[in-house]
Write a protein that binds this DNA or RNA. Sequence first.
DNA 1: AACCGTATGATTGTATACAATTGTAGCGTT
DNA 2: AACGCTACAATTGTATACAATCATACGGTT
Lengths: 220, 220
Amino acid sequence: MKEHRNISIADQIFEQLEKDILSGRYQRGEVLSELRLSKEMNVSRTPIREALLRLAQENILQESGRGMVVIGISNDDMLDMYDIRLHLEGEVARRAARNITEEQLSQLYELTDLQRFYINKQGNGSSEHTKNLDSQFHELLYTASGSKSYTDVLVRIHKKMTKYRIASISKQSRALQSNEEHMAICEALASHDTDRAEQAVLAHVRNAMNRMEHLEPIDG
Amino acid sequence: MKEHRNISIADQIFEQLEKDILSGRYQRGEVLSELRLSKEMNVSRTPIREALLRLAQENILQESGRGMVVIGISNDDMLDMYDIRLHLEGEVARRAARNITEEQLSQLYELTDLQRFYINKQGNGSSEHTKNLDSQFHELLYTASGSKSYTDVLVRIHKKMTKYRIASISKQSRALQSNEEHMAICEALASHDTDRAEQAVLAHVRNAMNRMEHLEPIDG
DNA sequence: AACCGTATGATTGTATACAATTGTAGCGTT
DNA sequence: AACGCTACAATTGTATACAATCATACGGTT
C-alpha cells in the first residue's frame, strides 16, 4: 500500500462494495465490520471506513449502532426507480432538446456508435464496455438538460440500476434494441423537437423497464 | 474530545457544514482544507474528513485534486427541485392515500397540530421547531407511500431545501398558510381519496414554490 | 538578468494507536 | 438451577503519525 496514484484505495473499495452489495453478493441484513473487511482486502480500516460512510450516505448501508447493515435494493425498488425516471426524464428530454450543444450532440452520437460496435463485437468484457457506454450516454443526456438538480437525482438512480444484479442489457438482442432507441433519442435531440425528444426518451425508459420485468427474480 | 456519546462529532460537523454551505455562509468555489477546519473546530482531521466525504457524496462539495471545493445550490437549483417535486409528489400522495396506516395518519395530524402551536407561539427558536416539524411531516408523508426509492429521492431534496438560505416559512402568515395546507393533506389522506390527496399535495408544493419565488435573491 | 534545480511547506491519503462502549461468556453465589 | 457480576473480546470513534505529492519560493549558475 505504498503507491500514491490518482485513484485512491478508498474509491476502489467504494466501487467494489457498491457493486457487491447492489449485485446481491452481500445479503440484505448482513453486518459489515470494518476490521473484517480490512483484513479481507489487506488495507487498513481507514479507506474501508470511508467507503462505508459514503455507502451509508447513499442509503445502501444503514449504520445501526453495531456495524453497518446491508440494505441493498429489491425488485420493487427497481420498478419504483423506473417509475421515477418515467416521471422525470420526459422533462429532462425537453430541456435537453432546447439546451444541448453541438459538441454534446456529437458526443452522444459517438457514444451510440461505439456502443453498437461493442455489442456486435461480443468479445470478452464487451458487456462491461456496453454498460459503461450506456451510463455515459444517459449521464450526458442528463447533463445536456442544463439542470444540476435533475442530473443529480437521475445519475444517482441510473448508477444504482446498472449495478443491480445482471443488467438487462446483457442479451445481445436487447442490447441492440436499446442501442437503436439511443439513436432515436440522438436524432430527436438533433432536431431540437421537444415533444419528439420527450417521446423518444420515455419510450426508451418504458422499454427498458419491460426488458427488466421479464427477468426472473432470484430470491423470494 | 473525550466524551463518547450516541451522536458522533463527525455527524455534528456534517450537519454544521451542510447548513453553513447551503445557507450561503461558504461561497461557491471556496476551498475547504481539512487541517484548517480541524483547527477552527478543535477536533482532529478524522471527523472533519468524514464529514467532507459525505458532503461530496451529496454533490454539495466536489473533490478537486487539491481540497474540497464548495458547490452549494443556487436559486435555479431550488426551482428545479420544486419542479422535480411537482413531478414526483403527486404519485407519492396517491400511494400514501392507498397505503398509509392509522398510526401514521395520527402522527401526521399531531405534527400538524404541534406546528400550528409553535407558529402561533412565535417564541425564541420557534422557527427552528417549525422547520423541524415541516421536515418530519414531509418525511412521514414520503414514508407512508411505502416506496423506498421515492422516499430516498424526496427526503434528500427536502433536506437541502430547508437549509437553503432563509426558509420561506419564516414569515408567520406564510407559515400559517403552509400549515393549513398540511391539514388539507391530512384530511385527504384520511379519506383515502387518491385524486384528492394528489391535488392537495401538488397545491402545497406549488404554493411553497410561489412563496419562495417572491423572496429576493441575495447575490447575482 | 534569466533559468533551472532544490528545499520547504501545505495538503491529502493511509496506517496505526488509543479510548470508550457494548455484548457475552463464564464463574461464583445463593 | 437461576441470577448477577466481572472480565474479556469485538467494535466503533477519534487522534496522531507517516508517506507521497504538488506548488512555490529562493538561491546558485551562466
